[in-house]
Design a binder for these strands. Structure first.
Lengths: 354, 354
DNA sequence: TTGTAGGCGTTATCAG
DNA sequence: CTGATAACGCCTACAA
């Protein structure tokens, strides 16, 4: 009888006793089960599985065989309890109802799983208080937190960032890693395009007053307009939705503007719908430009010209940055920027003569 | 000095020693810290926090004050390790890129957090193997698993369901809790509407061959057509996307059908775009009806008539059912149905004479 | 009512 | 290279 035969026999013999039933009555193998089956110490099992190389080939094989045999799965909780690392990233978005965030979620989810981490999702319903609660709830469970368009104050964010790595999307917070679309390129492309089509008066529809992004966009638009010799005017929206855009159609028509840029695509689409309902041709009478290039922006007639925010990329970048932070990569700090670009479609163009 | 004063003094005195630094150098209070600060035993802290009533009012107040003082958060892992319950639900969607699942995610997320649970998100990229891997990865961490439009085989799903509660959305699996939109009502409304507008020939565009839902929808359409005396014809799509819809425009025109129902809105929208590009008026020459009522279905011109799937409700129902299962509610089994309904918009109507 | 002690599954440390 | 042991934070009999 060879050594292998001995081992095989031992395996077989131990197997019956090796399966434990947890409280739900299901079989869940632990490293103890493996240890018993393989005839080694539990700590050796742990080593064999986690740092092969610090264990003899023979032992490793034995342990691996037993692990497969028992369909072993590590218990992440037990591991986390000791190591403090959970293999989990938290993502909190401001509004899960807003299609803008879906690309962020996608981006984050993809890179998270591709790096063998797990993503936990929560939402703040646009409330700073809810957001902070969600964050606090998540903290013990995650290795780091990604905040997409957070509504809480800078100081709260920094406090969180002191406890665990935090990456912010769509906003810049001093002292915290951030990922933001760089609005400048897209905006200047858009304004240049409008100027080239002879527009002289532009209306900007702002987003929520507390939105960092909205402020940046208006600044960018104002600056680009100045540069191009276009007069710009800012309108406040009630809410950054299709309905909010609709409500502004009347004021905008009255303003004498021949081109409109909206804080986001939803506003732009609502505006366009209402304009068309009122018989105002787009872009013949009024050019409309949105922001973000959300899903469905090209479903409209005419399809919406918009400045694309690489939201998916932002989600992905944030996750990458997060994992760098978690794994102590030294260079991981400061703000990451992702380019925006003009997507020229049918809703903007030359003013029809007359 | 009153007793309160004594306590206050004691609190203050102990506080300095009470904060522990974990390995990351951050402060994280444990029940030990609270115990020290409140001057009681850790087990008493646990009781005071979890089962107030089994502890004196005085002790409870003391402990609660200390907990607030230290900004204590339970460590879900430690709790889970002992109790086997993680307070976490897993959700796996077939394709995070597909807007159809947005609403499922929203529904599940909302009810999950409102019940003080946490949601973990993963995606299978339409692959049965990836799906199973994701599920296995999640199992140890979650109290239950929600599968939205799963691609893996029935047997795999049942195996998972034997280990922990599983709820399936958009598909029916024998022996597993399911939540499905009931297509019948919406379909019969749609077909009746088309029949009332004089349509006699209908084309159905099918979805992925392996999709349970696609099969159900085609069955439903076929039956309703028969009942209404409409001839129905089924077309295969390459992929259930806008592009997939575009590719079918030619064949559908050639088929002589005057009305089209698509497996989903994406196909319907693509078809409509291509028809219009080819100068075929919708609905004057061809009526188009979609399925699901995804975000953006009303952005098109004409806005898309569609059969709304209550996907958000399905997500929510699945989460509720899941929590019932997790908490051992006895009646929680069998299939839950959510009604579909026709959303009549501009893309369907009477055929233009001539 | 409160304290004591043991254990959940894993990993790290220290002997051997 | 491998084994024993302690610890992570919490909960729950059981004892006081």
């Amino acid at each position: 009888m060879t050594a292998e035969h001995h081992e095989a026999a031992a395996l077989q013999h131990n197997q019956a006793a090796a399966l434990q039933h947890n409280q739900a009555g299901k079989v869940t193998a632990t490293i103890y089960d493996i240890a018993r089956l393989a005839g080694v110490n539990p700590s050796t099992v742990s080593r064999a599985l986690n740092k092969p190389g610090r264990v003899s080939t023979r032992t490793r094989k034995l342990v691996e065989a037993a692990a497969v045999e028992l369909n072993y799965q590590v218990n992440p909780m037990a591991r986390a309890l000791l190591t403090g690392r959970t293999g989990t990233l938290g993502l909190i978005v401001a509004d899960i109802t807003n299609p803008t965030f879906f690309n962020v979620i996608r981006g984050a989810e993809s890179t998270t799983v591709s790096r063998h981490y797990t993503l936990i999702l929560a939402e703040s319903s646009e409330s700073a208080a809810t957001e902070l609660t969600a964050a606090r709830r998540m903290m013990p469970t995650v290795d780091g937190l990604i905040l997409a368009s957070p509504r809480m104050g800078d100081e709260d964010i920094r406090t969180l960032a002191r406890e665990k790595p935090v990456v912010v999307i769509n906003r810049e917070v001093e002292g915290v890693s951030c990922v933001t679309p760089d609005v400048e390129k897209g905006i200047s492309q858009a304004i240049r395009s409008l100027a080239a089509n002879g527009h002289k008066n532009l209306a900007f529809i702002a987003g929520p007053p507390q939105s960092w992004m909205s402020a940046r966009r208006w600044e960018g638009v104002k600056a680009a307009c100045e540069w191009s010799g276009i007069r710009s005017l800012c309108f406040e929206s009630n809410e950054p939705t299709v309905e909010g855009g609709r409500l502004l159609a009347r004021d905008i028509r009255a303003s004498g503007a021949t081109a409109v840029m909206a804080y986001n695509d939803l506003l732009a689409i609502g505006l366009m719908q209402e304009l068309q309902a009122a018989g105002v041709a787009v872009p013949d009478r009024l050019s409309v430009v949105g922001f973000d290039d959300i899903f469905g922006a090209d479903f409209t007639t005419p399809p919406l010209t918009t400045i694309r925010s690489p939201l998916r990329e932002c989600g992905a970048l944030a996750a990458v940055r997060m994992l760098d932070l978690v794994n102590g990569v030294p260079e991981a700090s400061g703000t990451l920027r992702a380019e925006t670009e003009l997507i020229l479609r049918g809703s903007s163009g030359r003013l029809l003569a007359g």
